[in-house]
Nucleic acid binder design. Structure first.
Length: 531
RNA sequence: GGCCCCUUAGUCUAGUGGUUAGGACGCUUGGUUCUCAGCCAAGAAUCAGGGGUUCGACUCCCCUAGGGGCUACCA
């Protein structure tokens, strides 16, 4: 069969998941490429649910897949919940079509009824394998006589409809990303079209639906390459025009085997729950098998649509690399508008139970609001009404985020990175406590610092810094010798943002309280537990 | 077993007969600094192996190896 050019037609692509599990990254990547191709070419993106496997299809899976696609921003134009001219978009609702088309094939002698029982088929395959032959249906029911068929049907013998595959010749097709293919028809057997329960098989339903839904480009995983010749024969037998095919390379795990649960999180839901940005996930997924020019890697969703092309899809399988995805996520996070970042962080903190804060800090006078200068003004009032409960905290949170700067790359790290701003029950690094706080000197220095801060009238950054440096001077210390224990006392860690901002944002009362507490607990006996 | 696909650093990739084989993540080192992150600079690391074709192969052909897929009344 020849490739039929259809360049005058509208681009119509589809993502056709079977609702038998969560939306995994491979499926999401396939959906994404379809979506990008459609948007790039002013086409239509169709979502079709392939639920012909009654035993494995579930409602939860169906809903989860839709949720995942929406989260990623892959909105479909026609689908189970958005009617279009070629619906319905759920296969279980299209059985009349599958049967009428099968009847047509039966009438034309391009398909036939097969009454072979499962046991008979098993025996046949076993015999073939014993003889060293490739196991495939031998077509024994193909020559059944008219009356014999009628008799068995009347007797209620279960049957399936099989495709009458040409015995010789070859089937060719062209793939947009891999070029030309040619399969010998002798390799293909008379596969089942309609199962004995009346449902269509995948290879059959996919062709009938793609044709009837006017799909112009079939973009899917390359695990379907071997199925394609069967489908091409079906298109031919049914008299449909052939769509263009584009087979995408598989996504593998670190050990180069097909990505699966044992490689860690494989569902889109899992990454959403881990607080990855959907736009970052989309960006990373796009790069798994496609490249723009080998140089540019950071794309907004919009830029991706503009840049995407099937021509630049790679043909080799890609290993899913979480480290690279985290980098992309960090880059996207950096570029987020402040107000959006504020909202996302607030959400994450809320989920962690850190908002509203366990203690309040009065920043009305002492804080230099110029800290956030240079950016567009934060429209805190625009933030979700649900967060009004801690609206008072939002200005301080904005400053904390600003102080954290690039240290905050992943939303899931909020507790680790800013927990001490919100609760006294923050994690203490035992080693740090031992190294920086467990000594008489540390105790007296921290007590001195606490006293100095207590007397400070304006608790703003310049005063706070000047006070500490002056004290270090007076004690004959490098300022670092005061800063390090101070940092551990206030945050429980040896790493934090600029210490003076930490002090200011913690507020005078909290700072003094923690410095005193640290001084009182030091020196800690060697075997002591953390605070 | 049969048929099919894939093979550039640890990973994602650029490359389309003549390049010092480019970029990115990660990694290492140095600089900035109160730590870390960031930023800046530098660095290590790649054409699976073997045959051809050619004046010349990462690029073309063949074989081998490795990985993957299909071979269901799963999709």
């Amino acid at each position: 069969m020849d490739l039929v050019e259809r360049q005058n037609d509208v681009v119509r692509v589809r993502f056709a998941p079977s609702p038998t599990g969560h939306l995994h990254v491979g499926g999401a990547r396939t959906a994404l490429y379809n979506y990008l191709y459609a948007r790039k070419n002013s086409g239509v993106f169709v979502l079709r649910i392939e639920d012909t496997d009654a035993a494995r299809s579930t409602r939860e899976s169906y809903e989860g897949i839709l949720r995942g696609l929406r989260w990623l921003g892959l909105e479909w134009d026609e689908g189970p919940d958005i009617d279009g001219p070629y619906g319905p978009y759920v296969q279980s609702a299209r059985s009349v079509l599958y049967h009428s088309e099968a009847d047509r094939l039966l009438r034309e002698g391009k398909a036939y009824r097969c009454f072979c029982a499962a046991a008979e088929l098993d025996a046949m395959r076993a015999a073939q394998e014993a003889r060293g032959e490739a196991p495939k249906y031998d077509g024994r029911c193909r020559s059944l006589g008219e009356t014999e068929i009628e008799e068995r049907l009347a007797a209620g013998v279960p049957s399936v409809v099989r495709f009458a595959m040409p015995r010789d010749g070859e089937t060719r097709f062209r793939d947009v990303v891999r070029g030309d293919f040619s399969f010998g028809n002798a390799e293909l057997d008379d596969f089942v079209l309609i199962k004995s329960d009346g449902r269509p098989t995948y290879n059959y339903a996919v062709v009938v639906d793609d044709a009837h839904m006017r799909i112009s480009h079939v973009i899917r995983g390359d695990d379907h390459i071997s199925n394609t010749p069967r489908q091409v024969r079906l298109y031919d037998a049914l008299g449909y025009r052939l769509p263009k095919f584009a087979h995408l390379p598989m996504i593998l795990g670190a050990d180069k085997t097909r990505l699966s649960k044992r490689h860690g999180a494989t569902s889109v839901d899992a990454y959403r729950d881990l607080h990855y940005l959907s736009e970052a996930m989309v960006n990373y997924l796009a790069l798994l098998g496609w490249s723009f020019d080998g140089k540019r890697e950071l794309f907004s969703f919009k830029a991706l649509i503009e840049a995407f092309s099937l021509k630049r899809v790679s043909s080799n399988p890609a290993v899913f690399d979480i480290a690279k995805m985290e980098w992309i996520n960090a880059e996207h996070f950096k570029m987020l508008p402040p107000a959006e970042k504020l909202e996302l962080v607030a959400e994450a903190l809320e989920e962690e139970g850190l908002l509203p804060p366990a203690f309040e800090v009065d920043l009305s006078r002492p804080v230099d609001l110029k800290l956030v200068a240079g950016k567009e003004p934060l429209r805190i009032d625009a933030i979700d009404a649900a967060k009004k409960g801690f609206a008072r905290e939002l200005p301080r949170l904005a400053l904390i985020i600003e102080a954290l700067g690039n240290r905050l790359k992943l939303l899931r790290d909020v507790r680790e990175l800013m927990g001490y701003f919100y609760t006294d029950d923050f994690a203490r690094d035992e080693t740090a406590v031992r190294n920086h706080l467990a000594s008489k000197e540390a105790a007296s220095r921290l007590e001195a610092l606490a006293r100095a801060y207590e007397d400070l009238q304006y608790f703003d950054r310049p005063s706070v810094e000047e006070t500490l440096r002056a004290l270090a001077d007076r004690l004959g210390l490098q300022s670092g010798e005061l800063i390090h224990p101070c940092r551990v006392a206030l945050t429980g860690k040896t790493v934090s943002p600029d210490i003076f901002w930490v002090i200011v944002l913690l507020g005078k009362a909290k700072t003094v309280e923690r410095l005193r507490a640290a001084a009182a607990n030091a020196p800690i006996p060697p075997a002591a537990k953390e605070g």
